[in-house]
Nucleic acid binder design. Sequence first.
DNA 1: CTCCAGGGATGAT
DNA 2: ATCATCCATGGA
Length: 298
Amino acid sequence: MIEIRALDFDLEKTLGSGQVFHWEKYGNGFVGAIGENALFLEQRGGILKVRFGETPKPAPGTRALPRIVARYFALDHPLEEICASFPRDPIMNAARDFCRGLRIIRQPKWECLATFICSSMKQVAHIRQIVRALRQRFGEKKEIRGHEVFSFPSPSRLARTSESELRKCGLGYRARNLLETAKRVASGDADLDSWSALSDRQLREQLCELPGVGMKVANCVMLFAYERIAAFPIDVWIERVLRERYFARKRKVTGQMLADFVANYFGAHGGYAQQYLFHHARMTGKRKSQSHSIDQFH
DNA sequence: CTCCAGGGATGAT
DNA sequence: ATCATCCATGGA
């Protein structure tokens, strides 16, 4: 068990804000995995307590684990500075107050890309279910505190499944996109790591060539896996916020107008602003705000 | 039961 | 460039 100082950080908000989908509530904390490392996490004030499971042979040293956790949760991001850069308006102010301590996670690239290919036209609860099924069927089993945790399956593992096997995970028509993208990544045709060197525009262009990846998913992957914190995904929730709050009673607002507006208005840390607006809207929305919490184990 | 979801691809204006 | 339609699935 190790302890990490984590100031200006809210574990529950960060894990429950719809950027990652596999962490499960467990007691006063969460069980899940960072890459191949199965973990139990629990926050007590400014301290993040971490227990790790029995890992196979090449276990990262206990020296390396705190850094892996701190990097994953982006504890190095200057959150005060980022929040101070948000525009001052009633909507943004409310979201900023509500989401204090929420950080944009640095996700493994393939895991992030694959899960957001699965996310299209799915509620967060459905995505969690799909991701759980993919991990259980094709991932590697780990154990933490007597509980099974599965790593996310590699591109090559998914590349040698079939569309019908993937459909058994509840993927529907997304199965083909996930399979084809897995093949491109596994073959090296799409080299996700090398894309880190690309400009935002070039990276977005490469991502959008993958089947099942359009502007929204590309922006999610850029924001959640490539540290492009200006990337501003516009989903149905954000679009509703923009149209109802920022473009109130205006007609003929095109998608391009929304994209241009957010790029100029929310600025260099727009991705953070977007995540705060998204989480705030989803948690306080008038429509069905009951039981959005992460599923409890029993 | 109905409604709708962290959309994308395609084809018609 | 913008819009219409279809695509499966299952929680709420």
